[in-house]
Each structure stands twice: as structure tokens, then as C-alpha cells.
Amino acid sequence: MSILKKQISAPTAVQGTPAASGELGDLLALMARLRSDCPWDKKQSNHSLIPYAIEEAYELGEAVQSNDDEDIKGELGDVLLQVVFHCQMYAEQGRFDISDVITTLQEKLIRRHPHVFEAETLEDEAAVKVRWDEIKAEEQQAREARGKPKRRLDNTKAGSALMQAQDVQKQASKLGFDWEGVSGAFDKLDEEINELKAEIVDKSKDEINANIADIEKELGDCMFALVNVARKLHLDAETATLTCVHKFKSRFGYIEEQLAAAGKCLEDSDITEMDVLWEAAKQHERT
């Protein structure tokens, strides 16, 4: 007996000005309309949305920490938007739609909770975690049976690029792919920085723009090498970067406050004045 493949079609776009009904079907129709009529939405691809999905997940985490219901609702909506946006585009490609995504999730949740939906009994949270990992291993075996072999670095942690880079390096190190000390990591960082410079220094703007894809790769190599330095020093690259972001925001806030005290705003200042205040901010931190 032949099994008919499901025909995938994108949702029908809503006409006129839609109402905020709270219904999933209306949201899908609204997304279809945006893909049809909004220049920015039409331009996007599944790959172009990746940074936004990561950003929204982080913003949701911050909103939950704030415990502000309005912020949490807004950020949950932004995460849902990413899911709906991706599903819309995959439906347009005829690959799958949101019902397939929901079905896959439901199947996974049922499969990974035999202690809830079957006769299996697990005594505590630790036992649930052990069984969860066993089921994931069984799922991996099924993927391998479908021709998707498991590779040694497939189980590295998901997260930001810095987090993934550090975990990939950690796992590779366990397999013997590493330098003895930090000096090798520094040498590699110098090598990658020089390669990046070679793509940029003494090049015209047109040359740089024409070669921007290769420049992006070289920049990524530099970032990856710097993470290696952090790992060899037993430092967390994500934490170090977040510390720097916080420091930058604090110092820039000091500049803004000092300008405001003088009756000025950032737009009234220039780089020379702001640089003086930047150094003052550093001194303010020390004292």
C-alpha cells in the first residue's frame, strides 16, 4: 500500500486590518500577510532569522528574571513569532508546516515521558533525567538507522556562539585535539588576526565589500581562536564577554550622565569629548 505524502501549503493571508483575536489560526494568517506585503518580512530567510531567534531567547530570559508580566508576555510573543515565521517560510517551500512541528513536539513529549503515559515508574527527578537520556540515545540510534550517523561533536551544548565554541573545543580536547598550553592558542590567535588583516588592510571599500563573505569567515576564525585562549586559561568566554558588555554600558552611561549634568546630550558631543569622559569613567570605576 502506498502512503500519500502530505501536501504542504502556506497559510492564507488575512485580508483587511486583522483583529488581535488570540487564535493561532489568525496569527498564521497574519504572518502570511506580512510575508506577502511587508518588504522586510518578504526579504527574510530561515538563515537570516537565526540571530533574531537567539536574541529573542535571551530577552525572554531577562524578562523572566524581571518578573514583569507585561515584559514576559511580550518576549514570549517574540519567541512565538520566530516559530511562526520559520514555519511560514518552510510551508512556502513545501517542506512542512506548523501542524507538523506541533505533532513532532507532541510525539517527543509522549515518547520521553513513559513514567507519565505508560506503566513505567520512576521514583524521583534524578531517575527521570536518567531515563530521559536513555530515550534520547534510542532516538539517536533511530536517526543513525535512517542514515544520519552520530559524530563525536554532535552532542556539544546549544547556546550562544561563544558557548558553543568553548564546548566544541573542550570536547575536541578530550579527544586529544589540543595544544599543551596557552602559548599554542595565542600563536593561533595571532595567525588568524594576521589573516583577517590581510583581507582588509590596504583594500578599497569596494574590494572589502566584494570579499565580505571571506572576511566574515576570517573574523569568525579570530573569535574562535580567542575563545580557545579563554578555555586554556580556564575562563568562560561567555562570562568574560558579558562582563565587558556590562562594563561598556556602565562607562557609556557615565558619559551620558556627565554630558546631561553639563546641559548637553550625546548628539551635541564629539568623539574627543566623549573619549575624555570615557577615561574619567574608568577612573570613576577605580575609585
Rank of each mutant, 00 (worst) to 15 (best):
Lys108Tyr: 05
Glu125Leu: 11
Tyr52Ala: 14
His113Gln: 12
Gln140Ala: 15
Val130Gly: 01
Leu28Phe: 04
Glu92Trp: 01
Glu55Trp: 08
Ile102Pro: 09
Glu134Val: 02
Ile72Ser: 05
Tyr90Val: 13
Glu56Arg: 03
Leu60Met: 00
Arg111Gly: 06
Leu30Phe: 00
Trp132Phe: 07
Gln141Thr: 15
Asp41Thr: 05
Met89Cys: 05
Ala53His: 03
Lys108His: 09
Cys87Ile: 02
Asp26Lys: 11
Lys43Arg: 14
Val79Met: 11
Thr103His: 05
Asp124Lys: 14
Gln93Glu: 13
Lys129Val: 14
Glu75Leu: 03
Glu125Lys: 04
Ser48Cys: 12
Lys136Phe: 10
Glu75Arg: 02
Asn67Pro: 07
Tyr90Phe: 09
Tyr52Asp: 12
Met31Pro: 00
Ala29Cys: 07
Glu59Gly: 11
Leu81Val: 06
Glu120Arg: 04
Glu120Tyr: 00
Val130Ser: 09
Asp41Cys: 13
Pro51Met: 00
Pro114Thr: 04
Lys42Pro: 13
Gly94Leu: 03
Met89Gln: 08
Gln44Met: 10
Gln88Ser: 13
Tyr58Ser: 10
Glu107Met: 06
Ile50Trp: 01
Gln106Trp: 12
Asp133Cys: 13
Lys43Ala: 15
Leu60Gly: 02
Leu34Ile: 04
Val130Gln: 05
Phe96His: 01
Asp97Val: 02
Val128Thr: 01
Thr104Glu: 07
Asp26Thr: 09
Lys136Tyr: 03
Ser99Glu: 15
Leu27Asn: 07
